[in-house]
């Protein structure tokens, strides 16, 4: 049970002019599962290594339950990191890998054997203890790496891209496993990923880091509904950004005057809405209804992407393939932007 707090954490590597991580601050409540999300090279792994004590920060602080841990050695922090490529010790059996942390703590070998057995049961690999890691599949290796980390009952668990090396069908299995183990043991968990889907699927809270700076730290759905800026929205697959002016109620733009939800930002800004929230307008046209021309239709299997044109403005829409079956390029399509799905970025 550990509340992790990161204060103004900065890392400048020797010889670098730009910081790899620039004054990152983050509060991670006890027992939560938090994602650090960002493109490769944005400072995520650097952050994890500094939390684990494997790398020294240039400035800033990391505290566990209010106490700074920067002076603590990595082995004394109660933080365990699971690396992306698992890094199982190749010359040890699976059981020896899992028991490694206990052996280093000089736990009695009989006790180690018992707990390794339990742990392998927990990650659903009960019969593989005698194998060498090279004889396991990627998914199995990852579960062994997870077991090796959890057996020492860490206060904080760090995961580096936990799902990205797995096949699609294994991802959900692994996601469920990580979530259930994490909830059961109540371990404060931080994972890094470059994949927004991975972040949203797994995390209680997501911190988006772009160019070494934190952009937004929020619940997963907020990144879709209330992105702080265009870069954030784009990172989450946002496509529609229409410049204009907001008076708080209505947005004046090349698309015309659109009605905004309550509490929208005012002044110069950009209107954004998710492609999947664009609807075909019902018969009785009302507020926020526009006439669009279909410029392109891209069939994606379970959904269809439409490139639309409203006057000079391009609008991206994602619809159910059945809805748009009868339309073709060049047709006029009346569209509707639901009020509650609009968001103004200042």
């Amino acid at each position: 049970m550990t509340h992790v707090s990161i204060k103004e954490l900065t890392k400048v590597y020797p010889g670098a002019t730009e910081p790899s991580l620039d004054r990152l601050s983050l509060e991670i409540p006890t027992g939560e599962l938090t994602a650090l999300l960002g493109p490769s090279g944005c400072g995520k792994t650097t952050t994890m290594k500094m939390i684990a004590g494997l790398l020294e920060p240039t400035s800033g602080d990391v505290t566990f339950d209010g106490r700074s841990v920067l002076k603590d050695k990595p082995e004394d922090r109660g933080v365990v990191m699971v690396f992306q490529n698992y890094l199982l010790f190749p010359y040890m059996s699976v059981a020896d890998n899992v028991g490694f942390g206990l052996k280093m703590r000089k736990v009695d070998p009989v006790e180690i054997k018992r707990r390794v057995g339990e742990m392998l049961e927990l990650v659903k690999l009960p019969d593989l203890g005698d194998r060498k890691p090279s004889a396991l599949s990627g998914g199995q290796q990852q579960r062994v790496a997870l077991a090796r980390a959890l057996i020492v009952q860490p206060n904080v668990l760090l995961l580096d891209e936990p799902l990205s090396n797995l096949d699609a069908h294994l991802r959900f299995e692994m996601r469920d496993l990580i979530r259930s183990l994490q909830q059961e043991m109540g371990i404060t968990t931080i994972f890094v990923t470059h994949d927004q889907e991975e972040a949203v699927v797994l995390a209680d809270r997501v911190a988006l880091i772009l160019d070494g700076r934190m952009k937004q730290y929020d619940l997963p759905d907020a990144f879709y509904k209330r992105p702080v800026d265009e870069a954030t929205a784009r990172f989450f697959g946002g496509h529609n950004f229409v410049p204009g002016t907001s008076d708080g109620c209505r947005f004046d733009s090349p698309l015309g005057k659109l009605t905004l939800p309550e509490g929208a930002a005012t002044g110069q800004g950009k209107l954004t809405f998710r492609p999947e929230n664009v609807r075909i307008a019902p018969e009785a046209a009302g507020q926020n209804t526009l006439n669009a021309v279909i410029a392109d239709i891209i069939y994606l299997g379970t959904q269809t992407r439409l490139k639309l044109r409203v006057g000079e403005t391009e609008v991206d829409a994602i619809m159910n393939p059945n809805e748009v079956e009868t339309f073709s390029v060049g047709d006029t399509l009346p569209i509707y932007l639901p009020i509650s799905t609009l968001w103004v970025i200042r």
Binding site: A52, L54, K73, P74, E75, V79, M81, N85, G101, A149
Partner: peptide
């Protein structure tokens, strides 16, 4: 990296 893993698992 292997050494980092070991350190974080509690090895001196």
């Amino acid at each position: 990296d292997y050494e980092s893993v070991a350190r974080s698992l509690g090895a001196s």
